[in-house]
Amino acid sequence: MTQPILELKNIHSGYGSIKALKGVSIRVMPGEVVAIIGANGAGKSTTLMTICGIIAAEQGEVWYDGRMINKVSPEKLPTLGLCQVPEGRRIFPRLSVEENLILGAFYRNDTEAIAKDIQHAYEMFPILGERCNQEGGTLSGGEQQMLAIARALMTKPKVLLLDEPSLGLAPIIVQQIFDIIERINKEDGTTILLVEQNANLALQAAARGYVMETGEISLEDDADALLNNPKIREAYLGE
């Protein structure tokens, strides 16, 4: 039986006295697309930040690729293939588009491959190629989301964590972004853990889903089953 590539075991974490996660357990298998859905403040972003070591887990274990990573420093994780596109995209605003991409490859030394990967990013997102010398902060929201994903891909991730990639974007752009996400998963075999408030979208893209409520996982099932679950339809799909 294959091992999960990413596993959270009973994770507790938070911000000082605020307990944002109260025993979260999640498993992601290699090559899977898994969604976490939940309302505002449920703890989705905190989950991703805890996986990446930005927020320390107070209790529980995070396992990635066969090792426990609780004590691994955050800047080490991208070099191991674990990378996050955080909520709000967090483009370096005063660096150019190209510089943002180059920094995605910060830990890499394979200069030629990096140049090739940048070209590949421009093929995947032609608008970024046109804007390559423009400052990241001047891009539109959709362009920033594309750049954030492209920058993450420059780290050569095995597991990509995506926090609300659809947030604040027009439907047509959202469709484009989700097409790309599917492509990354299908073509490169990248495992994806997707956090979304847009449950419909997330569950269509994912094979399995977790429902998060106030710091706990309240439900876990196949994406189709969740989509057809009357409670979920009522609470998260607006019916």
Partner: peptide, 11 residues
């Protein structure tokens, strides 16, 4: 510009 994001790209 952004220390958290820098850490997320291995800086």
């Amino acid at each position: 510009q952004d220390k958290t994001m820098s850490a997320l790209v291995a800086i």
